[in-house]
Design a protein around this nucleic acid. Sequence first.
DNA 1: TTAATTGACATCAATTTAGTATCAGTTTTG
DNA 2: CAAAACTGATACTAAATTGATGTCAATTAA
Lengths: 155, 155
Amino acid sequence: MKVLTKKTDYAIRALLMLAAKKGNYVSTKTISAEQDIPYQFLRGVLQEMIRHGLITSKEGVQGGFMLEKDPDEISVKQVMEIFQGEVQVSECMFRKQICANRSHCVLRHEIMRIEQVVNDEFQKITIGGLLGKLTAAKSAKPAGNESYKSASAKP
Amino acid sequence: MKVLTKKTDYAIRALLMLAAKKGNYVSTKTISAEQDIPYQFLRGVLQEMIRHGLITSKEGVQGGFMLEKDPDEISVKQVMEIFQGEVQVSECMFRKQICANRSHCVLRHEIMRIEQVVNDEFQKITIGGLLGKLTAAKSAKPAGNESYKSASAKP
DNA sequence: TTAATTGACATCAATTTAGTATCAGTTTTG
DNA sequence: CAAAACTGATACTAAATTGATGTCAATTAA
């Protein structure tokens, strides 16, 4: 079971770059190169985020993308919902009748509780918060001049 | 994002039936009919659970499946792991190098925390516990004689 | 004018999920 | 014994999701 899909993963990394370079337009090419994300795939991810109002764009030379919202107002949960839909127990229970099956019903109750915890936690994690921890970690290591881009470390 | 797949869902329902009829062999046909689970699909699920030591079987007429372990010793987490694998943040991070990308690394740390909470919670939910709540709910409603099988309630 | 860029799609391949089918072997029961 | 009710073990198929690529038009800065 995977918590984050590639799209969510890439989206968060792109948002972190945009948050770091707030006020400037950053091109898909730049993000793709720095984060090692497939170019065309990333384009789709960015366009999806425009549709959901997280970022804006400027076409043409020197164009690119910019954050539309305050980084502290963008939660990981929001991004997950865009690319993965809401967290839910088991699809069928919402499409069919609720609790037609009693065993399901009892289990559902337990899992809804966990769902709530997960949602609350992902809601708390914001782009602004992550960026803060990122820069804090960076400045704590004076030798590292790598920003948060791909460190090209081979295993 | 779906927390439980059909296989996990069906497996838990089947285990609840076996726990309720402890000591008796219950056939796939019976479980399939009572829980409204596709027969052949359920067979695969049950065989998978044999391989993982949760249940045993008896072939031939009057055969079927029986719990191998104490219902309190079977957690929903165990069942999820059989059919969905372990909860993990994002596939790639484990296959490739850890924390080659710093932004990923910070995010990963946060999500690992949530993962831990989710795992702990699913570990706490057991077949025995669910069955207890089930029978408690049943006896609280004297009118209902439906056990926990499909209540054929149309929406 | 040209190169760099996004907008809007269309398409594709791989993987996962859900479900079906078949045949061989075992066991109870008439 | 023979038939019926079962599981064991696979093989297969279809649909949905995920991950990725390609193309062409429109826009904009230099």
